[in-house]
Design a protein around this nucleic acid. Structure first.
Lengths: 339, 339
DNA sequence: TTAAGTTACGAAAACGATTAAGTAACAAAA
DNA sequence: TTTTGTTACTTAATCGTTTTCGTAACTTAA
């Protein structure tokens, strides 16, 4: 690789002059500056990021920490969409992204240590177990951090509005005439808590009391549990007219069970998902679901994090709440005037 | 961060001694070595990767280049699985991964330049347009490279065995009694060519002539085109008894059309996908598909690339072909003895 | 006793950049 | 004319490592 030294020799100036020219310092003459820039380009110069990082303590690299219960890693539908948007936004601002993990050969390296080792300028944390001591260590460190879908006291957070999301979803289902609404939710987490809380609150404000049997704990992205729990719901004396699933994918488990028992969707029973993945829109009938705005979430996360990195004084500690949108698929049907 | 300097002061030795101790050089006494290692651990020392990279020209960082037609980025089902496996394997060997892209703020930076700028030790290339001049520049460079699903002359390649895969898939379908088999394939690419080629060859060797109308060019991961083309197939005077789709996801488009036209799967018509994603296994009936061994592909890619990086002399130029497996779902039904 | 060899460490240069401080050369002000 | 101020550079230190080359101190062989 061609270095500043090479350019300085070719141009007959000092290395410092080259550095300052390329970084547009004001104390270099216009002609020299242009000449150097031109030769640099001609010679195919690109800065050595390691050298620059060593000196400036800035890597233009952002760490991504993501671990989920299912170890689905990058294949996680929701996260991969958020990450993709994050990546695109970050790259536009000159940042690359690197994964922070513990698979590392340096077994003893914690997330924080890994981050410091790589010298990332900041870290985005998503979908992990936020009670993990190592995650807490990272959150409490002096590194710029934004969290996704979880809020810490002194950290910027980007959260999907699960409360409004669930409220909107249920309101739509209610408007369609449903009064017996069941909810198979995912494993316990702050996201789940918000959704479940909102589920109860919304129905309560609509004057509906939810039987205990209507709320069941399932597993995210798991069709077996959703299938099993759906059976339980169908076997109830008074079974629900609509079932909400933890997410789009797991709704398929329920849908299959429903069809097997000879029921039709939405004529006999309605179903709804959550996430608004591509999948939900190709099912037949289309799945009614709450589309989380993964694009905005990823974009905001990147913007806020980079802002925090570059202007730590000005950056404000905020909690950005990103609203979703109800996708009114045909899987939730209209029920007669039995208001 | 604590540096070698801090350790050297605490231990009363030179920086060189610290460095050599931590790197297990033979010219340091056992006692000193142990003492230094112990203090290093106590002080929470971790090497500064930038400094090390600057000096050694080794970053323990691998670049990942992935661009697909659909710009689906990380959300690409096949690729995200391959990448996840790649990532896990690489991390186990102490390598982190960084994405190589062109979204970068340094607009003029090519893939190769980006790679050199970041100083990645090697690059894995997948699913991109392998005719892109920039990709070629990278492939022809002096950087260690492995490609996935495409073979260059002087490069290690890991390829999914699309020829055998399609052969196996069709053989199974044939065994189930099908003789009129249609194939909606994806956009042109070497992967597609292999599959289509194998499709024709296999059927030919089974003594079946494929009518031109049975082979249609669709789009990967696209349900609209698969739906549209399925309609065309159903409208034929002599429509196929089985339709193979570009991939699992797009098969849904076809399945919906089939159901809408009142046909049952597999009683009236059979369908098959390709990939073997989770999705294929939760459809009802389960989709018959060819499961590509994404785990092995990612793992091999990482292993071969790291081997090439660490032992460039010994590493052999090979083309690793990874076989898939037919998942015999219920979507392909048995047809009577009309051999 | 002396030469040669071994062991265990240190000094210093180098990787490629950034930047504070210094310095010529020249112009403008007093 | 002298002082002061600009402008346009250069020098040199520095970031945290690695590594080559020395070099004491001690051991062994002659």
């Amino acid at each position: 690789m061609v270095s500043m030294k090479d350019i300085s020799q070719k141009c007959g100036v000092s290395i410092a002059t080259v550095s300052k020219s390329l970084n547009d310092h004001s104390d270099i003459g216009e002609t020299t500056k242009n000449y150097i820039k031109k030769t640099a380009k001609e010679m195919g110069y690109f800065p050595n990021s390691s050298a620059r990082a060593l000196k400036t303590n800035k890597t233009y690299n952002i760490g991504v920490l993501f671990v989920d219960e299912a170890q689905s890693g990058l294949t996680h539908a929701y996260f991969s969409h958020v990450l993709d948007s994050f990546k695109v936004t970050a790259e536009k601002k000159g940042y690359d992204i690197t994964f922070i993990s513990r698979n590392n050969v340096h077994k003893s390296m914690s997330y924080l240590e890994h981050s410091k080792y790589r010298g990332v300028d900041g870290v985005v944390i998503a979908c992990v177990d936020f009670h993990d001591p190592e995650v807490l260590e990272l959150v409490r460190s002096d590194l710029p951090v934004v969290t996704i879908d979880y809020t810490f006291n002194n950290r910027i957070a980007i959260v999907s509005d699960n409360i409004k999301g669930m409220n909107d979803l249920i309101s739509f289902i209610y408007e369609m005439g449903h009064r017996r609404i069941a909810y198979i939710h995912g494993a316990d987490s702050s996201v789940t808590q918000n959704r479940v809380g909102s589920f109860y609150k919304t129905l309560d404000s609509l004057g509906i009391t939810v039987p205990d049997e209507y709320v069941k704990e399932g597993i995210y992205i798991d069709t077996e549990s959703s299938a099993y729990l759906t059976k339980e719901l169908l076997d109830l004396k008074e079974s629900p007219t609509c079932i909400i699933y933890p997410d789009d994918f797991s709704s398929i488990g329920g849908i299959n069970v429903i069809k097997e028992s000879g029921l039709r969707i939405p004529e006999d029973i309605s179903v709804a998902g959550y996430d608004g993945t591509e999948l939900s829109q190709v099912l037949d009938p289309k799945l009614t679901t709450l589309k989380q705005d993964t694009k905005s979430i990823g974009k905001f996360a990147a913007e806020k994090l980079i802002n925090l990195i570059e202007k730590p004084k000005i950056a404000i500690l905020e909690r950005v709440v990103v609203e979703g949108e109800v996708l009114r698929g045909g899987s939730v049907g209209k029920i007669g005037n039995n208001s």
